[in-house]
Design a protein around this nucleic acid. Structure first.
Lengths: 117, 117
DNA sequence: TATTTATATTGCAATATTACGATTAATTAG
DNA sequence: CTAATTAATCGTAATATTGCAATATAAATA
């Protein structure tokens, strides 16, 4: 058997810029309704949350833990231990990177003249 | 054999709000460096593009076509036929939906007082 | 110290995504 | 009409993601 397609199913990150890969990682982390819900909840309660997320979300505890881990790895939330529980809140850094991308897009869209499509 | 976990690997969209699912779909569509590159290229050339994307990207034609389809399905780009080729440009609607989400986040982050994490 | 509470990790089942060769479809050029 | 060009679709290989039961870990409490 030949390994003709050894990278099938794998994103070819090496062919894109670091900025493009970073943006994709951030967007991907937001690409799940549970993770959107987590972000929204963090904003809603306006404080660091400690665990009640499992009660808020329609998912089992290990699944929530996994989603939190992905948001943390992407740099969109931060988490610190606070006694027995852990405390999460938004990580400004991650959102700053997204911000400049969307500022670029919005500026473009606002000034766009023609639109052949 | 029992099909105990018939929905394994499937996002439980039905338990989230329509808005959360919509946002997740949009973010997910941006969650790949090739699709970020496509959006950036559409902004850079400031016009509808007709096919040269395959030359710009380090991916085969069917792969590029697939990424374009995903961006189109998510509502982030539009495409029209123009003779033998097809013409793509940004779809403002999709980006509008993302915009309000990030406005919410930015407003929150700018006004946030404490930060226990 | 033993028990409870809170969260992370492991392991695994199942679907989703990524990538591309081969092919198809549709238009243009000759 | 035929060949060339352009882009979508099909089929398939391979990895990634999602979800949860079971388990592990770590701190608080009795």
């Amino acid at each position: 058997m030949q390994y003709k397609y050894i990278t099938m199913g794998v994103t070819k990150t090496e062919h894109f810029t670091e900025e493009q890969n970073e943006l994709a990682v951030l967007a991907k982390a937001l690409g799940h309704p549970a993770r959107i819900a987590i972000i929204e909840h963090l904003i809603k309660v306006d404080s660091c949350i400690c665990g009640e997320l499992v009660n808020e979300l329609p998912l089992a505890q290990p699944t929530v833990s996994q989603h939190l881990k992905e948001l943390k790895n992407a740099g969109l939330i931060k988490g610190n231990f606070e006694g027995a529980s852990i405390c999460y809140c938004l990580n400004e850094e991650g959102f700053e990177k997204i911000k400049s991308f969307f500022t670029l897009i919005n500026t473009y869209l606002e000034n766009r003249k023609d639109q052949c499509c």
